[in-house]
Amino acid sequence: MSGLTIARRQAVWAWIFLALPLAYFSLVRFWPALDAFSLSLSKWNLVGPRRYVGLANYERMAADPVFWQVLANTFEYLLLGLPVSLALSFLVAYHLDRVQTGHGLLRALYFLPHLTTATALAWVWRWFYQPAPVGLFNNWLSVFGIAQQPFLRSTFQALPAILVPAIWAALGFQIVIFLAGLKAIPRSYYEAAEIDGAGSPQILREITLPLLLPSFVFLLITTSIGLLRIFDLVYNMTAGGDGGPLNATKPLVLSIYQSAFARMDMGYASAQTVVLFVILLLLSLLQMRLLRARP
């Protein structure tokens, strides 16, 4: 190596250090991911031989009413969860930013669920949703004389009931991101606005929100991806972990899991994975364009 220039020698060392993680990611991440594409064109039960079947898995998917319901559920998680989750976390962060006393404690309390295992969280909430006298919420309802609610047992209420802890668990992380964004806005911007006589709505509309746009876009992307990949809460909060009742809460990832590891149908699972991949890709591209179009 002594014959090399300093820059080349540094490059050689850099590649030596990069080699191990590169090999790891290629073997454990990229290759299986790419293999999913070819697997989606095959039939395979994990142990027997792989058999090429063309687009059969995709044709089956298009004809499968459960797949379409699962897809609709997945987007319901996204379209319901995203606005509520971002609006809520912004609202909390915006007000938390103005609180001096107890700021640290409050922030820690909001962040706590982010540190909790999703499984533990799911089972506690599952218990909250039980009928009286076990379930917390139905106990409250009975105290106020309001009719008992089925929550997780209703095809209509189950999905939102699972979404609530999902939103709550994500809140801490989102609040921290928003708080960082709010802190980055110089105080003099607000003071100048105060001297200029701007009211809270004008300050929010013309200063805070536009300057918080990068935080919004970042959270839009991460939260969307998180919601589209929702799995563990559904798996742990529904009876038998099968996304019931009547597939009412089943998201795409759970459906993939069941195809692959309950029915050992790797080809069909891979085909659904490809669909999820395409959705995530399109969404990310769209949001990256949004971010770049920013003035």
Binding site: S188, Y189, E191, A192, A193, D196, G197, A198, E206
Partner: peptide, 27 residues
């Protein structure tokens, strides 16, 4: 009163015209 700040406190996402008109819009 009007105040000129050390860091100018100009809003980076607004044009010069909108920056200068901020207080007038507020009024």
């Amino acid at each position: 009163i009007a105040m000129v700040f050390q860091n100018y406190a100009l809003y980076p996402h607004m044009t010069v015209a909108r920056n200068m008109g901020f207080g007038l819009r507020a009024a």
